[in-house]
Amino acid sequence: MLRIHFTTEDLLKTRVASSPDLMWELVLSVFRLRRRLAVARYESWYQQVRADASRSDLLPRIRLMLMPMIPASGYFPDFLTPESLRHQGSESIIETVAGSPRDVLRGQLGPLGRGHGSAWLRRLHEADPEARADLRQLLWDYQRIALAPHWNAIRNSVEADRAVRTRALLDSGVQGLLDSYRPLMRWTPPVLEVRYSVDQTLHLDGRGLLLVPSHFCQGTANSLADQTLPPVLVYPAGSDRTAAPVTLRALGRLMGDTRASILIATGIATTSGELARRVGVSTATVSHHLSALRAAGLLSTSQQGELVLHTRTRAGSDLVNAARMATT
């Protein structure tokens, strides 16, 4: 259990990340790549990454370098997930991670243990230039195979979760936002109790908290080991349980004012009943159109407590924005 203590200032500074975090997704996807930790949601991703990585020497490098640095459970180094760079490009982020100062490498790789992992990891602990170059190439190759081809799915998962949190915030303020994370988290002011791998207490002390939804996060939340760093809490983004493959046939069914109105209305997470009232049709009619929009990959449906909420995917938002530009 992680107990996060808030002040009034912390509540004012609490926010939800606007996009996926490359390095958190990379680190957490390594957990999913371990076969014994894989679940159905990641099965097709797992099979494709294993197949693509096995065509080169990437799979052995993942086993010998990446997995020892990111063990199956417990501690992994904070320098792998630098918050200050999350809005920069992947090349810049990877370059900074691989170029971490020698004292950071020693301090954060040290807790893994001198006898833990590979000889390469021990060389990285000593900031060996060749080991740094290996890390840079490994991270670049891994994100190219394991993340880049799947980034739309990752982004849609994160954006759908953010839409749910935005609704909770608009309806009930920060208290409602924090309450929306049940059962993973329990908000008992001024403490947020979070399902976590170890027992730990974090005092925000006026710094606020960045909540980061993650596609590859599963089961429990994650945070930084060093509590002097800006506080971050990474949690599992809600999955779309009803998503269907995108097909040309499904896209062809998207003509008509009713579906366009529904797509426009789902810029913020919305229930079927609310959509029916807003668009002026029956709930059954809304349900029919929602199915078509999901099949086309334009809309995502997730459950938040007793509410079933619908929100546009990135593709849906792109379509709405394109239509708006065409009429201006």
Rank of each mutant, 00 (worst) to 15 (best):
I4L: 07
T8W: 09
T8E: 15
E9Q: 15
K13I: 04
T14R: 07
D21Y: 05
D21M: 05
L22G: 00
W24A: 09
E25M: 02
L26M: 10
L26R: 00
R32P: 02
L33H: 02
R35K: 15
E43P: 07
W45C: 07
Y46F: 15
Q47F: 00
R50T: 04
R50L: 14
A51T: 14
A51N: 12
D52R: 12
A53G: 09
D57Q: 13
L59Y: 09
L59M: 13
P60M: 12
P60D: 13
M65A: 10
M69K: 05
I70K: 01
I70W: 02
F76Y: 13
P77G: 06
D78P: 08
D78H: 08
F79W: 09
L80V: 02
L80Q: 01
T81C: 15
E83W: 04
S84K: 11
G89M: 06
E91V: 10
S92D: 13
I93Q: 11
T96G: 04
G99H: 04
S100H: 01
R102N: 03
D103W: 12
V104S: 08
R106G: 13
R106D: 09
G110L: 06
G113M: 10
R114Q: 11
G115P: 00
G115C: 01
S118I: 05
W120M: 09
R123D: 10
R123M: 09
E126G: 03
E126F: 02
E126A: 13
A133T: 09
D134G: 13
L135C: 03
Q137V: 07
Y142F: 12
Q143G: 04
I145M: 13
H150N: 05
R155L: 03
S157M: 02
S157P: 02
A160I: 01
A163M: 06
V164M: 11
T166H: 14
R167L: 14
Q175D: 15
Q175L: 11
S180C: 09
W187S: 05
W187P: 02
V194P: 07
R195F: 04
V198Y: 08
D199S: 15
Q200Y: 07
T201D: 15
H203Q: 12
L204F: 09
D205K: 11
R207D: 08
L211C: 09
Q218P: 00
Q218E: 13
T220W: 06
A221K: 01
A221F: 01
N222I: 01
N222G: 04
S223T: 14
S223Y: 00
A225K: 05
Q227N: 01
P230K: 11
P231V: 05
L233Y: 04
L233R: 02
A237P: 04
A237G: 12
G238S: 15
D240L: 02
A243L: 10
A244Q: 15
A244C: 07
V246A: 06
V246G: 00
T247S: 14
T247W: 04
L248T: 06
R249C: 01
L251H: 10
L254R: 08
T258W: 00
T258M: 01
I262D: 00
T266M: 08
I268Y: 03
A276I: 07
R277W: 04
R278K: 13
V279E: 03
L290M: 11
L290F: 06
L293S: 03
A296Y: 00
L299V: 10
L299K: 08
S302G: 12
Q304T: 12
V308W: 10
H310L: 04
T313N: 08
T313W: 06
T313F: 05
S317E: 14
L319T: 01
N321Y: 05
A322K: 13
T328R: 11
